[in-house]
Amino acid sequence: MNYFSKNIKFLREERKLGQSDLAKLLEVSRDNVASYERGSIPKLDVLVRIVNLFHIDLKDLVEKDLESIPPSEYTLAADPGIPYQRTPQSEDLTLESLQKLVEIQEKYIKTLEEKIKAGSKAKR
């Protein structure tokens, strides 16, 4: 299961950031942050900024429900002043996480395309 959108909102609220605040930190629009929280997957460069901002492994961000588990069970630096120390993982795990994100994004795009197609047929 993909917990990305739920985790983005959880991490943002945990840090007491508004969507606009997070958008500035990620160098995206507030609408982008809102769409990530609704299920849209950001581009890879934004994903990297999210991982670095929250000091969390991509695998944890995507595959764990961070809200329902204690912080000791995921990799998160509580103090933003502490440099991010990525837990050792094989390249396969990171690639696997990215592939899952791509698959989800492809499904999301397909769903949007179908909605657009259905909407244009309804207007005819």
Score class of each variant (00 low, 15 high):
L93W: 10
L76V: 01
Y84C: 04
Q89C: 03
I50M: 09
E67R: 06
S97A: 02
I104C: 04
K117F: 09
A118F: 08
S40F: 02
R30D: 04
S40H: 10
D79G: 05
V102C: 02
K107I: 10
P80H: 10
E113W: 06
K123L: 12
L53E: 15
V48A: 04
Y84S: 05
R30H: 03
S40M: 06
A122M: 08
V33K: 13
L101S: 09
S40E: 14
I56C: 15
T75I: 07
E73Y: 04
A122D: 15
L101I: 06
N7T: 03
T94K: 12
E114Q: 13
V33N: 09
A77P: 10
L26V: 01
I56V: 15
F10D: 04
R30S: 06
G18H: 07
R15C: 03
L17Y: 06
F10A: 03
V46I: 15
S20A: 09
I69D: 08
S5L: 05
D65I: 08
S5R: 08
D45M: 06
P83R: 01
G81I: 08
Y36W: 13
G18W: 03
P88M: 06
N32S: 15
H55W: 01
S120A: 01
V33I: 08
S120P: 00
V48E: 06
V102A: 00
I56A: 11
Q105V: 02
E113P: 05
R124K: 15
T94I: 11
K24C: 05
K43T: 02
E96V: 04
S20P: 02
L76I: 00
A34L: 12
P70E: 02
F4G: 05
G39H: 14
V46D: 13
K110P: 00
G18L: 02
E113R: 13
P80S: 11
L58V: 03
N7L: 01
E27S: 11
E91P: 09
S35P: 01
E63T: 11
P70T: 04
L53G: 14
A122N: 13
P80C: 05
K6P: 06
L26I: 02
P71D: 09
E63D: 14
L66I: 00
A77E: 15
S120T: 03
Y84D: 07
D21Q: 06
E113S: 11
K117I: 07
I104V: 02
K9P: 04
D57I: 09
L112E: 15
I56N: 13
S29E: 01
H55Y: 04
T75M: 09
R38G: 11
L101Q: 12
T94P: 07
I56W: 12
M1W: 04
L22Y: 10
S40C: 07
E114Y: 07
L25T: 09
K16L: 00
V62C: 02
L93T: 11
S97V: 01
R30I: 00
G119M: 03
D79L: 05
E103G: 01
S97E: 03
V62S: 00
R30T: 07
E96R: 12
E27L: 08
L11R: 13
S35T: 05
D57Q: 15
D21R: 07
I104M: 00
